[in-house]
């Protein structure tokens, strides 16, 4: 039992170092983790996949760069899937540090979609994505609850211009769009309380199908809204992103990361078990008067 007691007294920086080494090594080992797709992620994919061409979806990039790790892969997988299906996208970013990052992501995905590729064995010839025709990026406005309500009346109320300063009325795609009535669904990729506002002020007030992509920390607390039907689908953390990439047959950063997640979790679980054994061993020794 002394082994476990010594572990209890070990400097925690050794744990950090060990975990970092495991993560680095497994990242460079070539293997793939099987992905089990949960129904809540599948519902998002199936909804997007079932929409006819030229339908419009609203994608809210409601996260800051500090949540890129989990939510950026969702953005890439979702947008590529939607553009391959010839859907139009209205982008917003109601998080204050998001617009620049979102703009960069849109450009990156546009470049990617322009290249020919094969998905599910079907050749996709590539497509030029045009601002104002295939997408509109509305940018950021403060006080997200009021912005969400305002967009329900008319997108032009909170956003008279798009992110690049172009009046919305001059954009071809926005000529047939007034408010949420012309939008097939809203997908919010969020790392904060903006998700609550989308539920209360968006879906609750206007009744559109609402899907969430959330950081891992937030996911568990939003399952009740999925159970009650207020959310039509839900992606949780990097695992949710990996599931979407798997469904869309679009290998990306999330699936690449899964081969590190698995051993990292095993290591953490082992550390938790060892820590508990050490704790109970130390307690038993203490109760028996320090004699092992």
């Amino acid at each position: 039992m002394q082994f476990f007691e010594r572990l209890m007294k070990m400097d925690r920086r050794w744990v950090f170092l060990f975990l970092a080494v495991v993560c680095f090594i497994t990242y460079y080992v070539k293997y793939e983790v099987p992905i089990y797709v949960e129904p809540e992620t599948e519902r998002i994919y199936e909804f997007i996949d079932s929409l006819p061409p030229d339908d419009i979806i609203l994608l809210a990039i409601d996260y800051d760069p500090n949540s890129m790790a989990e939510l950026h892969p969702m953005t890439y997988a979702l947008v590529e899937h939607a553009w391959r299906k010839d859907l139009k996208i209205i982008f917003t970013s109601l998080s204050q540090n998001a617009p620049g990052m979102a703009d960069q992501a849109i450009r990156d995905i546009s470049d990617s979609v322009a290249q020919p590729a094969t998905y599910h064995g079907i050749q996709f010839p590539g497509k030029d994505i045009v601002n104002g025709v295939d997408y509109v990026f509305l940018g950021y406005k403060p006080y997200y609850a009021l912005v969400i309500l305002g967009m329900g009346q008319d997108f032009r109320l909170p956003f008279p211009n798009d992110y690049y300063g172009v009046p919305l009325d001059s954009l071809p795609m926005m000529k047939r769009v007034i408010n949420y009535d012309q939008v097939a669904c809203v997908i919010s990729l969020s790392s904060g309380t903006i998700s609550d506002a989308w539920i209360s002020y968006g879906q609750g007030r206007f009744g559109f199908p609402l899907f969430f992509g959330l950081t891992g920390v937030m996911t568990a607390q939003y399952y009740p809204f999925y159970g009650s039907g207020q959310l039509s689908g839900l992606m949780g953390g990097m695992l949710g992103a990996a599931q979407y990439e798997y469904l869309a047959d679009n290998y990306g950063l999330a699936r690449d990361a899964m081969k590190v997640q698995l051993p990292a979790h095993i290591i953490i679980i082992l550390f938790i078990i060892m820590g508990n054994i050490g704790y109970f061993a130390a307690r038993r020794r203490e109760r028996s008067g320090g004699v092992s």
Binding site: A20, C23, F24, Y27, M68, A69, E70, T215, G216, V217, T219, A220, Q221, G236, G237, M238, L239, L253, D256, A257, V260, Q261, A264, H265, I268
Partner: peptide, 18 residues
């Protein structure tokens, strides 16, 4: 929640490795 939080923290580290 704890399980998801662990995944989130590891995700941040993996992103930096990438």
């Amino acid at each position: 929640s704890f399980g998801y939080t662990v995944m989130a923290r590891i995700s941040l580290f993996i992103n930096r490795i990438q």
